[in-house]
Design a protein around this nucleic acid. Structure first.
Lengths: 206, 206, 206, 206
DNA sequence: CATGAATGAGCTTTCATTCAT
DNA sequence: GATGAATGAAAGCTCATTCAT
């Protein structure tokens, strides 16, 4: 998951650029029409390429979908990496800000749509499932490490998952309630994040 | 949203049964293949009907999708109605149980897939958006009423949305992490629910 | 082609009325959409009848088309019958007036559309051809009789056909040139009609 | 309406040839079955092409119909161009010969069927109407110019339309009366043409 | 007599993919 | 590498006709 800067030849660079072009076009089309309504012709047109040529880089449309799922998951995972550097007392706040911030922009609603497509596909296509689970495990491992080793908390895996419930739950909520009052949500979200990271769990409660 | 038992004629009963047949078949196919990959032919075959005959009951495939979205949203809303009868001191616990319980069954993962499809479509199709937002508003109104009038809490709308973040977030989480440890999650979830319903918010925190 | 007033029973009257209802609806739909795009369902709806019930009166859609062709041709033939009573010196004028008058109304443009459909179908369907030729022969016989016996002219068949060229040609012209100046056309048409009915033909000319 | 011989690339030639192939096939099928009964599958088969590929050249079946209407109308217009070179004293004779000649062949009956389809469609589809009216205006302009400037006659527009009444009227007549005696018709037609082009109109008459 | 549910073939159109150039 | 012509199966949908009620 880490980028080792192996130098590329010109041809390789060109190839990578081409692939990015295709994936960008595909992502756009998938958001706009869904995986299965977006035609190769439209993707090709957006990528400024002939439909036939796409098959020099991808074996099939399924392969493009898989590549998109991989790229988007990797990008999401990357965004979690920055929490590593955060001071432990501020983690809840930083995460809250991040969660709220990330849905405050229009771009992220589109991102959410792509995520919905990915998760739906994930239940049907084992290859997609594998990619998604892989990235999720990576993110969880990072976060769990943070929570267990840096914050010294128990139930680290469960707390991790619960943190992540907040992220995806918030994105989901915005889709269903477009009038969501983020102003007030942020207060509740911060309290919730802190509650999840509270050392005393299952002790005082009940 | 209430069921008034108006007696039906034989023809009406038959019609309603046929429509149910179609919607059941469609829901199944949509889960299995997605809205846009599920062909009318397959839906028809599952509904034990000729493809042409479906058009006696639905104007188009889009109309079937809309009907499915409406039906599923209504069913989800119904499930929230039972919280009305819950004693206020137990609300957090009941909701937690409900949230965890509802994702513990295989049926609900399929339900989640349908939800993903619906939310993706919601960003593309204004008619679908309208249906989803309508049902979400209804559920929120119920829950807000509960929180404000029965529990006497402020920030009722925000707390409502935050509660619902937990439900959809949890369902989402299970799709990404199929090994989710529900056992431990339930503890955290109950604490989170209680935290959201805690009278002191934004006061002690910070 | 003549109406002998045989008294009808109530049931027969009802039947005739039903058939008229269907033919009126069909004619309307055929004008609006063409023979092969007008669906039985639409015809049935316009005739305020169930689709199935139409088959009590007509064996097939083809039979309805044939009946329409028959009825419309018969009506057109009827309109020619009134020329019988016209004074021979006025025939050209009366026919001119009739020809121009008949296309001056909107109704007759629709009539023309139906005629176009009929003539196109006539080249494909022998049964339709038979009906059209039968009525045309009837009209020609009448007109030829008039020209030969009342006006005492030679070449009666050819003159008849030439007269009829004017009728259909004028209707055709209006479809292609909707700005047709009828005011001036009427002068030319009268002269043409008179020329066709002129006793000296092939004699002075050339 | 004039042909400028711009040289074509190989690809352009191929494209033009393909389009001709489709239009020829379509014209054949339209004559045989009518616009709306001729299926794309049959047109494709006749054009020796897959059904799907037709959509590389035409947006829809409607577009093919429009192209056919345009091509046939243009061809018909072209045929009128030759009258320009005719000596004014012979115009009536030449036109008569042309009118009679053009319907004497089987090809032109088929042409007539296509014309019927076109005129029927013209009343339903504004785009088709526009194409037909455009070509008709072009032909009329040519003929009016001839009659007014070369023959020096008044009422040029009306005479033009009246000439054209003869052409379409004759074609129409042959469809209704397949036993039409062309031998005798030609005499009457020549006299009629001359009558229409006679300098004294509305003067002696009446 | 009258309905409208039901069928299944056929309609126009789209689409992933291949391949000659 | 790059094109876009070409395919053929499948998509959503329509329609003439039948038949149980």
């Amino acid at each position: 998951m880490e980028q080792k800067p192996i130098p590329m030849t010109g041809a390789e660079k060109r190839r990578t650029a081409r692939i990015s072009q295709i994936l960008d076009a595909a992502a756009h089309c998938f958001v706009e029409m869904g995986f299965h309504r977006a035609g190769m012709a439209k993707i090709a047109a957006r990528a400024k390429m002939s439909p036939g040529h796409i098959y020099h880089y991808f074996e099939s449309k399924e392969a493009i979908i898989a590549a998109i799922v991989d790229r988007e998951s990797a990008r999401a995972a990357e965004r979690f990496a920055e929490f590593d550097a955060v001071d432990s007392t501020e983690l809840a706040s930083v995460m809250t800000e991040r969660a709220v911030q990330s849905i405050a922009e229009k771009t992220d609603i589109l991102q959410s749509v792509l995520n919905m497509e990915m998760l739906a596909e994930c239940q049907r296509n084992p290859e997609i499932a594998c990619i998604i689970h892989k990235h999720d495990r990576y993110v969880r491992d990072q976060l769990t490490h943070l929570i267990r080793d840096k914050l010294g908390l128990d139930l680290a895996e469960a707390r991790t998952d619960m943190m992540m419930v907040q992220f995806s739950g918030l994105a989901n909520r915005l889709l269903r309630n477009p009038d969501l009052d983020l102003q007030n949500m942020v207060v509740l979200m911060r309290q919730t994040m802190m509650s999840i990271l509270s050392p005393t769990i299952g002790h005082e409660a009940k």
